[in-house]
Simulated assay, not measured.
Amino acid sequence: MTPAVQAAKRGKVAFTLHSYEHDPKAQSYGLEAAEALDLPVEQVFKTLMALVDDVPVVAMVPVAHQLDLKCLARAHGGKKAQMCPADKAQRLTGYVLGGISPLGQKKRLPLYLDGSAESHEIIYMSAGRRGLEIAMAPQDLLKLTGGKPAEIVRDKSSKE
Rank of each mutant, 00 (worst) to 15 (best):
L109C: 11
A14P: 02
Y124P: 07
S157F: 07
M136D: 00
A86F: 06
D54W: 07
Y20T: 03
L111Y: 06
S101H: 11
D155S: 13
E21L: 09
Y95P: 07
V44F: 15
A4V: 07
V52G: 02
L97W: 04
A59I: 04
L103R: 01
A89W: 12
L37T: 09
A7M: 09
S116T: 14
A14C: 06
E160H: 07
G78F: 08
P138L: 06
L109M: 15
A8W: 10
E151M: 07
A36S: 13
T2Q: 13
P3Y: 00
S157G: 04
I152W: 00
K25R: 14
L109V: 00
L97R: 13
D54R: 15
G30H: 00
V57M: 10
K70H: 08
R74S: 12
E35F: 06
Q66V: 06
D155F: 13
P40L: 00
K46Y: 08
Q82V: 01
Q90K: 13
L144P: 03
L39E: 02
R91V: 06
S157Q: 11
C71K: 15
L144K: 13
A135H: 14
V58Q: 05
M125Y: 10
Q105L: 02
D140I: 09
L113Q: 03
K70C: 07
L69D: 07
H65M: 14
E133D: 06
K25N: 14
G128D: 09
Q90H: 05
G131C: 00
T47A: 11
S28I: 02
G146E: 12
L111W: 05
T2L: 09
D114E: 11
K106G: 15
D68F: 00
K143A: 14
K148P: 00
M83K: 08
Q6E: 15
G11Q: 10
V5N: 09
V61N: 09
S19F: 03
I122S: 11
G30I: 01
D53R: 01
I122L: 10
A59D: 09
Y20A: 04
G77W: 09
S28N: 15
Q27T: 10
E121H: 07
A59M: 11
A8V: 10
G131D: 01
V57F: 11
V5K: 07
L142S: 12
E121I: 04
G147E: 05
A34E: 03
D155Q: 15
K70V: 09
Q27G: 02
R108W: 01
G11V: 10
E32I: 02
V58R: 05
R129I: 13
F45I: 02
T47N: 11
M136F: 08
T16A: 12
L51I: 04
P138Q: 01
L97F: 00
L144T: 12
M125F: 15
A86E: 10
R10E: 12
C71D: 13
A75G: 01
E121G: 14
A89K: 12
I134F: 03
I100C: 03
C84G: 05
V44S: 12
L142G: 13
M60D: 02
F45W: 04
V5T: 12
A34G: 04
I100Y: 11
D140H: 10
L111A: 08
L103W: 00
